[in-house]
Amino acid sequence: MPYRLGELFCGPGGIAWGATHADIGNPEFSIIHQWANDYDENTCNTYRHNICPENPNSVYHADIRNFNLENLAPIDALAFGFPCNDYSVVGEQRGMDGVYGPLYSYGVRVLDLYNPQWFLAENVGGLRNANDGTAFTRILEDLRNAGEHGYTVTPHLYKFEEYGVPQARHRIIIIGIRNDLDITYHVPSPAPYANIDNSCRTAIEVPPIPPNAFNNELTNQSPTVVRRLEHIQPGQNAFTADLPEDLRLNVRGAQISQIYKRLDPNRPAYTVTGSGGGGTHIYHWEEPRALTNRERARLQTFPDNYEFIGTKESVRKQIGMAVPCQGARIIFEAVLRSFAGIPYDYIEPNINE
């Protein structure tokens, strides 16, 4: 029987796409959507449209803090990419003391209620250092003790560019296997993906994106931004480029390296983000413009037929908050192989850079 997956903080469906497309050659070991929840209406509509169009009522648009977790359909697996705002290295890093820090506890609550066989929890690398490391320790402890039997947890800092994803995106992912099951999960080795061309040029240009593709609207760039970008070489940003004085940014204090940073076409992209003002939209290596949302979606390995619902800025946020589809698929396939007893290449878990 397929594993029925429930999701909290589901986002637009990067995790769900990876789960439902995970294939180890045995249909008895597969994953199907059961239900999902997110607080953002456009995000829920995107998820419904692409993941479960035949069952739209299985996606619950609700703030998790007001959402009744007790009457959901049974699940065999849980995924939750709990909000990372308070753990991100870009920001104040309030950790457990922030608005979003304690939201992981709703995932623990679902584990207590439904006792799924396994789970996947995802967050940013900054989670390790929040509250001087005590937040991460507490989260792992709560996950280990969840449910009727507890879970054996395997946290690892996945560097998705090492797995063929055309983007330098580093995320802590915790896999938990219920303790009463004689199953051991291993972190899949990136070695099989070492020879994949994961340059951003290849991701964006091969095959070419049709001009009328969904979510492919161009951003209107001001003449000043166009002039600034024309002085910035691939791989440079607004602070490392040799800019005329009238195009320099008058920014005191921290200089974020991604401000007006142009992609290096021969390398994976830098991290796609979901928010930020001028200068944070990811910039083409050749054309003096920001990437389109469809180009950004390719860097997140969403297929071109994945249609995001909402305004241009809403779609930008959805794409930036997602887990890369292909990265998620690789991890889910490792979980399925663990349960199927199929050996695979693996590495020792590591949460350090």
Rank of each mutant, 00 (worst) to 15 (best):
E70W: 02
N85T: 15
L249M: 12
S105P: 01
L69I: 02
L111H: 06
E28D: 15
Y100Q: 14
Q167C: 12
A36S: 14
A135K: 03
P268W: 05
R248A: 02
V315R: 06
Q326H: 14
R298H: 11
K159P: 01
H156T: 07
A213C: 15
A297R: 11
D246V: 07
R227H: 14
L8P: 05
R296L: 15
R296P: 02
V251K: 02
F136R: 06
R48L: 06
Q221N: 12
I259E: 04
G276H: 02
V124K: 03
Y151R: 05
H149G: 05
L111N: 07
I204S: 00
T202Q: 14
L78K: 00
N293H: 10
L111G: 08
I173C: 13
Q300W: 05
E148N: 14
R65C: 10
G253W: 11
G341S: 12
I64T: 06
P207R: 04
D142Q: 14
Y346F: 14
A19F: 01
Q167D: 08
R228A: 09
F29H: 15
N195K: 10
I330V: 15
I204E: 00
S105V: 09
E161L: 03
A146R: 00
L103F: 04
N212P: 06
R94Y: 06
Y47L: 10
A290K: 05
V124W: 01
C52N: 13
H21I: 05
A340W: 05
G18K: 01
E353L: 13
E287G: 08
M96Q: 13
A254M: 12
W35N: 04
I177F: 09
P53E: 13
Y60E: 00
P188G: 06
N215E: 12
R128D: 05
F308V: 03
N212Y: 10
V323Q: 07
N266G: 14
T311V: 10
W285Y: 15
F160Y: 14
F302T: 07
V206G: 05
M321A: 10
A340G: 02
L113D: 10
P211E: 15
Q236H: 08
L157H: 05
G6N: 03
E70Y: 08
Y270C: 11
R94G: 12
N50D: 07
I139H: 00
D76F: 05
